[in-house]
Design a protein around this nucleic acid. Sequence first.
DNA 1: TTGAATATTTAACGGCCGTTGATTAATATT
DNA 2: AATATTAATCAACGGCCGTTAAATATTCAA
Lengths: 191, 191
Amino acid sequence: MENAIKTDRRILRTKQSIRKSFLELFAEKEFEHITINEIAERANVNRGTVYLHYNDKYDLLDTCIEEHINELISLCKNRENDSVSQGMVHDPKPIFDYFHAHFPFFAAMFSNQRAFLFRDRLLNFMSTNLLLKMERPANMPVIEHELKAQFMASAFIGIVEWWIRHQTPHTTQFMADQVRNLFEQNRVYPA
Amino acid sequence: MENAIKTDRRILRTKQSIRKSFLELFAEKEFEHITINEIAERANVNRGTVYLHYNDKYDLLDTCIEEHINELISLCKNRENDSVSQGMVHDPKPIFDYFHAHFPFFAAMFSNQRAFLFRDRLLNFMSTNLLLKMERPANMPVIEHELKAQFMASAFIGIVEWWIRHQTPHTTQFMADQVRNLFEQNRVYPA
DNA sequence: TTGAATATTTAACGGCCGTTGATTAATATT
DNA sequence: AATATTAATCAACGGCCGTTAAATATTCAA
């Protein structure tokens, strides 16, 4: 059942123009300082027309993020057929390749306040799929120092976010124990 | 040398009133929908007066975050005198206690777009101090499943952020290897 | 090719923003 | 208690926001 309803050419043209204009501005200046006026003017489109297709500039960024997330997910899916996380865990290189290939966008994304948008979506996708692939014996190679510090710190914040977002489902003691265990497992020790 | 320049009472009163008004609104509604008008009205202060003390609502939130961060840092420092990370790694309970004690604020913070602000600061503080306390032998206790997934996912995103923010200083292959090692170390394996 | 459908433009609205200059009020100091 | 200092108010500005209604232009399909 081919459900191919042809979209009006005007819509395609306009959307593409707005999108292009926005991505240029996004790479050029701070997201918070981008105005709908600018986007419309650069896209050679009436200001009102932008609102015909997007709620606001946040919605516009949302759309771009959505596409990247879908690309990343299919990147994981294509390489291993039975499990999404399998490909992701086995070889993360293609994922980094993808980030690298779209450096201008992601550089703006992460230098920017709106990183949370992207972070939220990717985080949700990953944690869902990683959940299926845990627990195995190990041998421990060397990890670059600064990188590992970043790894652990980010992980810690992630747990705090999770705990708060779930209305603190565990006691502070339990959470503290969990974190200590995770630190130990990663060879981070006091004194 | 006591450099105690008494601040004008009007300033103290006004700032306190604005701050209180803002924190109430922050707990009540989405940050993005809070207006300076609202803050001023609830604080019984002229709209212009708010701008006398803060650049904008982001600056206001910033101030609140700054205070919490300082509290958290001194929490770590007070318990162990020679090293900040020592207390943090040895027993994270007081940190969770602090979050719990200020639940309304942090719930708003993390449900909210501006989490990145807080995240950035705490992340920076932690990674700096964790860097000093790595590498030790280990024994591996059990970690709750969902929590660990969150832990790993958040850590992965953190590494990506770090890599992008540092202008991709390593090749994608190197990064992929590092991440694989970290996954292995935490007993996350493909297939 | 023509008519129907619809995307876009135009102009205008009230609202909040951040800033300014002049005025009024509160405070600190003597 | 009188005075100098300075904080807060008030009113007004141009700018962008998001929305609307009517007019215009473009596309689609018969």
